[in-house]
Design a protein around this nucleic acid. Structure first.
Lengths: 154, 154
DNA sequence: CTATTAACGGAAGAATCTTCCATGGCCGAT
DNA sequence: ATCGGCCATGGAAGATTCTTCCGTTAATAG
């Protein structure tokens, strides 16, 4: 791990990951430093790329994205152009949460959020199998989200 | 979609998802309402569960979690006790980001972050195959993260 | 032992938050 | 059409917080 982080930095990272709305005053108290120091540390963590942003978490089922689907994708050919075209097209799809090039039986794994199964079936037929170079897809409907997007532990 | 959300609510949700550190003043300006109204709306979105939290995003490679792995898991038996035991144990593993019960060739899909491949091999041998009821696992190393944890679009 | 550097916390003006209150719009009932 | 009840809104203001400046302290090297 980057050893330019002391105990205070790690504490700030963990506290802000758990609660990105912590005020600088509260954060300082929890990290046992003065508000001035805490402010400098936090600013540095952003500037140097340890923290890449802060995001409010929207409840998927409240905005009609309650259905999660994992999709394995196999491409026709394994050329750089083929991969590039697929990635560019997949990254533009707004329902795609993850798109990862993997080693194994599939070329890509997608994690997708949609409203319901009917929604997914339409998307699958019209957008997924239409992605450039797709030979076949395998769909894994998520029946229970045991852990979803857990915070990073370090 | 829950239709108790008007245009202003949706704007606040999207703005806070993109930038959870927006001050109430800036948020109000961007949503074209007064700070007082913006504050009330935001508070309501939290209280009624549309927003479930705010989280700072830590750069994985900066904290020695630069390697992403997807793992498909098949259990021995398909009994409720078996599933329950597996889920309880998997949820406690700190390197597990996602754990989903799926329909298809696997029982569960895991998304895991570790330091490197050696790290994963140790974890796989000591912790994953040791999870209760595991018959077999299939590992998909992520070679390229095209899209990871994209914000929800709605 | 001294000089240099870097990080710290106190302090204070500026900005923001949070709540109260009066106003205005909308809808149903008369 | 008019009235009354009901919300939601925005202005205002005290309390809180942010952000920066500055003097001090601790650590390191010469």
């Amino acid at each position: 791990m980057a050893d330019e982080l002391d105990r205070t930095d790690l504490k700030i990272l963990r506290l802000l990951q758990a609660n990105g709305r912590l005020s600088n005053a509260d954060l300082a108290a929890a990290a046992a430093v003065s508000p001035a120091t805490c402010h400098r540390r936090t600013q540095r963590l952003f500037e140097e790329g340890y923290l890449t942003g802060v995001r409010a978490l929207v409840a998927p089922h409240k905005v009609d994205r309650g259905t999660l689907v994992m999709v394995g994708v196999v491409l026709d050919r394994s050329t750089p152009e083929s991969f590039g075209a697929f990635e560019a097209a997949a990254a533009k799809l707004k329902f795609v949460l993850d798109c990862h090039l993997v080693a194994g039986d599939f070329d890509y794994f997608l994690k997708i959020r949609v409203g319901d199964m009917a929604d997914f079936n339409r998307i699958h037929g019209q957008q997924l199998i239409a992605l450039p170079g797709v030979r076949q897809t395998r769909t894994f409907f998520v029946m229970k989200e045991v852990v979803d997007n857990a915070p990073l532990e370090f």
